[in-house]
Amino acid sequence: MFHIDTKHPTPLYHQLERSIKFAIATGKLRIGDQLPTVRQLAVELKINANTVAKVYAELERSGVLQTRRGVGTFVHDRPAEVAFSRRDRERHLRELSDHFIAETHSRGFSIDEVIEHLESRRKRRAN
Rank of each mutant, 00 (worst) to 15 (best):
F2V: 10
F2E: 07
H3F: 04
I4R: 02
D5S: 14
T6I: 10
H8I: 00
T10A: 06
T10Y: 02
Y13F: 09
H14G: 00
Q15S: 03
Q15G: 01
Q15N: 06
L16P: 04
E17C: 06
R18E: 15
S19L: 09
K21P: 04
K21A: 08
F22T: 07
F22I: 12
A23R: 10
I24T: 08
I24L: 12
A25V: 01
A25C: 11
T26L: 01
G27W: 01
K28V: 03
L29K: 11
L29P: 01
I31V: 15
G32T: 00
D33F: 10
D33M: 05
D33K: 04
D33H: 12
D33Q: 05
P36G: 09
P36I: 08
V38G: 07
V38N: 10
R39T: 15
R39D: 09
Q40I: 04
Q40Y: 12
A42V: 09
A42N: 11
V43L: 11
V43H: 08
L45Y: 09
L45A: 07
L45N: 08
K46S: 15
N48Q: 11
N48H: 14
A49T: 08
A49K: 14
N50A: 13
N50M: 13
N50K: 14
A53T: 05
K54F: 11
K54H: 10
V55D: 03
A57Q: 10
A57N: 08
A57G: 05
E58R: 13
E58T: 14
E60K: 07
R61T: 12
S62M: 09
S62P: 00
S62E: 15
V64H: 09
L65E: 08
L65N: 03
L65G: 10
Q66K: 13
R68L: 03
R69V: 11
G70E: 05
G70H: 04
V71Q: 13
G72H: 06
G72P: 01
G72K: 10
V75P: 11
V75W: 06
V75K: 11
H76C: 03
D77C: 03
R78P: 00
R78E: 13
P79Y: 06
P79I: 07
P79V: 04
E81I: 09
E81P: 03
E81L: 14
V82Q: 12
F84S: 01
F84H: 06
F84N: 06
R86L: 06
R86Q: 11
R86H: 10
R89H: 02
E90G: 01
E90S: 12
L93N: 02
L93H: 04
R94I: 00
E95Y: 15
E95G: 15
L96A: 11
S97T: 15
S97W: 14
D98Q: 15
D98H: 11
D98N: 15
H99M: 12
F100H: 13
I101T: 06
E103T: 04
H105G: 07
S106A: 14
S106T: 09
G108D: 08
G108H: 02
G108I: 05
F109V: 03
F109C: 07
F109M: 09
S110T: 15
I111V: 13
I111R: 13
D112N: 08
I115W: 00
E116N: 09
H117I: 05
L118Q: 05
E119G: 08
K123P: 00
K123C: 01
K123A: 07
K123D: 12
R124L: 04
R124H: 05
R124T: 11
R125G: 02
A126W: 01
A126C: 03
N127M: 13
N127R: 15
